[in-house]
Amino acid sequence: MQDQKGAHTMLHVGLNHYLVLSGVLFSIGVLGVLLRKNALIILMSIELMLNAVNLSFVAFSKYAQNMDGQIMVFFVMTIAAAEAAVGLAIAVAVFKRFKEVNIAHFENLKG
């Protein structure tokens, strides 16, 4: 995809930049989820992934001159807040029991 306006000004930030940033943020989030053992860090990494997606939503919305993407972001943020609340509550409960929030302890949740 070629941004026609990109030729006039060097500092113009186009869609591709946003998408690359979004991809990088998302990958960092994924790696965080996969590799870190601390549940809090994992929750933060998930936030990172969600926000990477939000970023691409907003970028597309601007690019396409369409508000749908921005509205979608509100939904994602709402869900993220709810998810964080639930995740943190579980993390607190696990911490009370094991005095740390290592992801390995979550295994004990299975019936």
Partner: peptide, 12 residues
Amino acid sequence: NGNVQQYALYIV
């Protein structure tokens, strides 16, 4: 095996 991160790896 109950390891959540492993499941996440499968998803990825």
